Amino acid sequence: MTLKAFYWKYSLWAAILNTVSIIAFLSFRHYSNTWLLYIGNILFSAMVLIGVIRGYHRVHDSTSVRSTFMMGFKITIYGVLLASLLCVVVLITNSLVSGLNDSSNPPQSGRGDVLFTILSNTIGVNAVLGALAALIGSTVVKKNQKTEQGKTLY
C-alpha cells in the first residue's frame, strides 16, 4: 500500500465515524443532544491517532517527529474534506426526507441553526482535534525522545 493510500484509508474511516454520529444526531430529532456530535469528533481524532501510530510502526519505528506529525496532519486534512463531503450529503438527504425547517416545529425550537452547528462541528472541531491528535501522537510514539532525527516520509 502506498503512503497516499494509507492516508486516504484512515481519513475515510475517520470521516465515516464522524458521519455516523451526525446521522444519529439527526435521527433522534432532539437537537439538544449535541453530545452526539462531540462523540463523532472524539472518534475522528481517535482514528487520526490510530493512523499516526500505525504509520509510525509501518516504517519500522524510524521516522522523525516532523514526518510523523505531517502524516497525522495529512490524515486530518483529508478526513475533514471527506467528512465535510459526507456531511453535506447527509444534510441534503435529511432535508429531502424531512426538511431542515419542518413546519410542525417553530423556528424558535432550536432547529434553525442545525446546519451551522453540524458544519462547524464537522469542519472546525475535527480540524482542531485531529491536529492535536497528530501532534500528541507524533511525540508519544517516538522511541528515542532525545533527538528528532529519523527518516523523512514526505
Rank of each mutant, 00 (worst) to 15 (best):
A14Q: 01
L135M: 06
L12H: 04
K9F: 14
V90D: 00
K4L: 09
Y154I: 13
N18T: 12
W8P: 04
D102G: 06
F44R: 06
G124V: 08
L135R: 00
T76Y: 00
S109Y: 12
S67R: 01
L81S: 08
W8E: 02
T2I: 11
F28M: 11
L96I: 13
A131H: 00
G150C: 14
I123E: 00
Y10A: 04
L26I: 12
A15I: 06
G55K: 04
N33Q: 01
S98V: 14
A46V: 14
N41A: 11
V48Y: 06
A134W: 00
K146Q: 12
A133L: 00
L17T: 11
T139Q: 05
G72W: 07
F6M: 06
R29V: 13
Y31F: 15
A24L: 13
L96V: 13
V59W: 03
I123Y: 02
S138A: 14
D61V: 10
I92V: 15
L153R: 10
A14T: 07
L119G: 07
L26F: 10
Y154T: 12
T117P: 04
L36G: 09
V125M: 02
S67C: 07
S45Q: 08
L85K: 02
A127G: 00
Y56C: 04
K9C: 06
V128L: 09
R66E: 00
E148P: 15
Y38P: 06
G130P: 08
F69K: 07
L17Y: 03
A127H: 01
L96P: 01
N41R: 03
L132H: 04
T117N: 02
K74E: 05
T139K: 12
T147D: 06
I118F: 06
D102T: 13
G40C: 12
T117W: 00
F44P: 03
T117Y: 04
S95K: 11
I22T: 13
W13E: 00
Q108L: 10
V141Y: 09
I53Y: 15
S84L: 06
L17E: 01
I123T: 03
R66S: 11
N105P: 00
L36Q: 03
S62T: 15
Y10S: 02
V20L: 08
D61P: 12
I42C: 11
V140W: 11
V20S: 05
N105T: 13
V97R: 05
L26D: 06
S103G: 03
L37R: 07
W13I: 15
G51N: 07
Y10D: 00
I136V: 15
S98P: 07
L91C: 07
I23C: 10
L12Y: 09
F6C: 07
K9N: 11
A83H: 01
K151T: 14
S62G: 15
D102H: 15
M1I: 14
L91I: 14
L100Y: 09
V65T: 15
L36V: 12
S98H: 11
L36R: 07
Y31C: 04
W13L: 08
